[in-house]
Design a protein around this nucleic acid. Structure first.
Lengths: 343, 343
DNA sequence: AAGAAAAAAGTTACCGGTAACGTAACCAGA
DNA sequence: TCTGGTTACGTTACCGGTAACTTTTTTCTT
């Protein structure tokens, strides 16, 4: 009934100080190990801290001083796509080990969601932001520029970033895959993905891929962009749709390995042999590929390294170290055995 | 050079007010649409808000009033396990739609990490917490009880929760699978998982499973708990290890479908027919199962519903609605065709 | 046109910490 | 004994909003 120290019924520094018979300031100094107090005082204060179960209110600290918070806002399109889940995990682990907290934002691949999330998260005075993608709405850009905090754009390498950028060039990456498949002798190719946005890494990959194929005298005869997440089942039914519309496709390039595996399953269940009857190429070198009998033709991208690098860049910038503002984490083609070397 | 309004170079409400020629309080009222101002004033204030790019400082708002923040701390073991990624996604979507922000904590399945994270996140005065699992360290429990905020424990249904609980009874769930496999005629069973913690839902599943098997006159002849994430490849090499140690296993129960798929691949690549030579049962009804030729024997658990329910319970509690403190989201056996009905 | 009620403001104090500065107590050295 | 320096504290003001209260202005009534 009584015993409610303050409105939130939370113990404040003032109460600890009173109980210990010192001033707020002395208690504050003890808690921050700032020095300027006797051992006897330190013990008295810490005893009360334990006894009362005092937990500092970081809101007040940040609010009071001009120090920034330890929040880092991290926006991710969705977690149904295994790639982004991995990246988020790597980011949070690294940030956490440096005493930072991740404030998550799932943007569902829309700039509108991203803008709303940015507005909200900025009002919490984060120390920095990590955003997926290089394209943002006009109002988002304005807020980001005014925020005056470090910003790392990940995934899609941006040579002239808002602040910092970590990722790869998706156009080049798609181009390399296209050239490889042309080199294998394929001329009539298909694509199955889920991006319905022109300003997007997956789209850049498709564009690079298409360029390479056309440069090599081939053609991307059909491309399918589903309104779904880039997972196993969309790969499966996407392949069905693609082949129903266009029977003469020799090889399909997928947005990622999960979709490619779905496609592989579809083909094999319909009695098509891979790679003899149709070639399959994925992207991302995802975990599912590690247990397949055939090595899936894919593109290895170091996702964990990407997340770590983004977090490291953020932390370095926050601690005032000079940092490069872009970092290309690279990729590597995995020739695999789900395509045929026809020549 | 000049033009830096305050230390953070952020526009404050006071500056907006000054620019609009009104008091801070009037500007505050306009921004909260509280009423008590004229249309002319409203326009003047909002014009300055737009012009100066004012973003409110929510830290100050929360700090000032006794209203709580809109942060919800969400702890998740890891994102390598697809199940948890799905749950997190569902939670964040739902919370976001009600204007709340997710502060993420990846505990790596350890109580120590969880405790540290709880301490930190509580210092940010969250409105509530959503924690995975029903077991917490002693000091964590103390902090949680003192926090005075809503807490939802998810995943492992806790009949006497700290506050609220959403999930399923994993022991019963494991038991049902055990009984089913006994009913199929299997007597010599194996288990492959990754949990190295006795206080854990996966362990409870294994215990329920073992109980049912033994009740039915069978035996779990070998169980393997890897120090790894519950993904595809651990399922693959875990199966290899299990079968190397114990050749006479008739059927393997896996911690989840990802691992089961890895095991399925191993068996088929070694020339074993599933289910003729060996039975395979997974858990969770994960996406990978949707593209396989054979329906994987598994247990469907509505993960998205779990996350949504947790978020809904939290929001209902925060808005003062009376809510049930436990919610069983249920599960459903999928007989599948990767086990043999021997009788 | 005077007075009362309603509307539209402004003032003050406060949330929980911390920076900056002030002061008392103690000790050393000349 | 006095000065000067150090150590160990205490005081005050402030961060950016908002609740609660007060004052001014407008509107309406008779």
């Amino acid at each position: 009934m009584a015993d409610k120290p303050n409105k939130n019924n939370k113990v404040s520094l003032a109460e600890v100080a009173r109980a210990a018979g010192v001033s707020k300031m002395t208690a504050s100094r003890v808690l921050r190990s700032e020095g300027g107090y006797s051992e006897k005082t330190r013990v008295r204060v810490m005893t009360q801290v334990d006894q009362l179960g005092y937990l500092p209110n970081r809101l007040a600290t940040v609010f009071a001083g001009d120090q920034s918070s330890t929040f880092i806002g991290v926006s991710i399109p969705d977690l149904g796509n295994e790639v982004f889940a991995q990246v988020l995990e790597a980011i949070d682990r690294k940030l956490g080990s440096f005493g930072h907290q991740t404030v998550l934002g799932l943007t569902q691949h829309t700039h509108e969601e991203e803008e709303n999330w940015i507005r909200t998260v900025l009002s919490w005075q984060p120390a920095g932001l990590i955003l997926t993608g290089r394209y943002h709405s006009v109002r988002a850009l304005e807020m980001l520029r005014n925020a005056g905090i470090p910003i790392v754009e990940i995934w899609d390498l941006n040579s002239s970033p808002l602040d910092m950028s970590v990722g790869i060039n998706h156009f080049d990456c798609g181009f390399e895959m296209g050239r490889f498949l042309i080199g294998c002798g394929y001329r009539s190719l298909g694509f199955v993905g889920t991006s319905h946005d022109t300003a997007n890494a997956a789209t850049a990959r498709l564009e690079g891929f298409t360029k390479a194929v056309e440069d090599g005298g081939g053609q991307v005869v059909r491309q399918l962009c589903l309104h779904d997440t880039a997972g196993f089942y969309p790969g499966f039914y996407g392949t069905e749709q693609l082949l129903a519309a266009q029977r003469d496709i020799e090889c399909i390039f997928y947005q990622n390995d999960s979709m490619a595996f779905g496609g592989l399953q579809y083909c094999e269940q319909r009695g098509m042999r891979v790679p003899e009857d149709i070639g399959i190429a994925g992207w991302g070198d995802l975990p599912v590929a590690s247990v397949l009998r055939k090595r899936l033709t894919s593109m290895h991208v170091p996702h964990l390294k990407l997340g770590q690098a983004a977090a490291e860049l953020m932390i370095a910038r926050l601690s005032g170290e000079p940092v490069a503002n872009t970092r290309d984490i690279g990729y590597r083609l995995i020739p695999g055995s789900t395509v045929l070397q026809r020549r």
